[in-house]
């Protein structure tokens, strides 16, 4: 039998057949659902892929603009502006908040940036180049905006990739392991039940034949007995030995 090892080790009874059939129905339904989930995730995944590529490209532009703004600021405000900036760092006013988005049961982290308080660099470039410094700041905040968006896309990309892999693995496992195994079990149980039925039938037939033979034997015995009795009767009547009476009756 093909796939003898590919079936569950169960006792072949009608009850178990019902249970296994129910499990097969469950597996089929689960397979369909998981397949749908996988499809939904893939659609989302494709959308994110496209977005990542375009955002990456725009990131190059934004970074170029902000670098240029910084160069401008440095030109106007002097080289040592960067030391002022680096020395003035205290706590981050621009932070990232993460929230989760639910797509087909998969939680995707999304980042949002927000400014807590105004930056403390107000005095930077007070002497000269204040406008450029502000412009540079705006440019870099814009860059952060793009980068944060890109970061959330990237995390979604990685998470979704993982989720799709797991889902596909489950779909394939259901399709090529669980379902054939259950189907094999069902055919096995059905075969065994048929076998039992045939055996039963055969046994009934056998018993019937046995009984018939018994009746026949009894009838024969009764016939013989009647003959014997008749012979006895005759022998008594005629006064001849019983064997002679037998012979007389046989003729």
């Amino acid at each position: 039998m093909s796939g003898q090892s590919q079936r569950l080790n169960v006792v072949p009874t009608v009850t178990v057949l019902g249970v296994v059939k129910a499990r097969l129905i469950g597996a089929t339904r689960g397979h369909a659902l998981l397949k749908k989930k996988s499809d939904a995730l893939t659609v989302q995944f494709r959308a994110i892929l496209k977005k990542i590529v375009s955002t990456k490209e725009s990131m190059g532009e934004v970074m170029k603009t902000s670098s240029f703004a910084l160069t401008e600021a440095k030109y106007v405000a002097g080289e040592n502006i960067k030391f002022t900036v680096i020395e003035n760092v205290k706590t981050a006013s621009l932070r990232v908040k993460s929230r989760t988005e639910n797509i087909a049961g998969v939680k995707l982290p999304k980042f949002d940036y927000f400014t807590e308080s105004e930056t403390k660099n107000e005095l930077t470039g007070l002497a000269r180049g204040g406008q450029q410094v502000q412009g540079c700041k705006v440019a870099y905040v814009k860059a952060i905006e793009v980068l944060v968006e890109l970061a959330s896309l990237q995390t979604s990309f990685l998470t979704l990739d993982e989720a799709i892999k797991t889902t596909n693995r489950r779909v394939n496992a259901l399709e090529s392991v669980v379902k054939p195994r259950l189907e094999n079990t069902i055919t096995y149980i059905k075969g065994e039940l048929d076998e039992l039925e045939r055996e039963d039938f055969f046994r009934l037939k056998k018993i019937q034949g046995f009984k018939k033979r018994e009746v026949e034997n009894k009838r024969k015995a009764a016939l013989e007995f009647r003959e014997l009795q008749a012979a006895e009767h005759l022998s008594l009547e005629k006064g001849i030995p019983i064997t002679a009476a037998h012979d007389m009756l046989a003729i």
Binding site: S66, S67, A69, L70, A73, I81, K82, V85, I86, V89, K90, T91, A92, S93, L94, T115, T119, N121, T124, V133, C136, K137, A139, Y140, V141, A143, I144
Partner: peptide, 16 residues
């Protein structure tokens, strides 16, 4: 590098 860091610090990302 220093320039990139300076820019982002100016935007208020830095934390000590």
């Amino acid at each position: 590098d220093e320039d990139t860091i300076t820019g982002f610090l100016l935007a208020g990302v830095g934390n000590v």
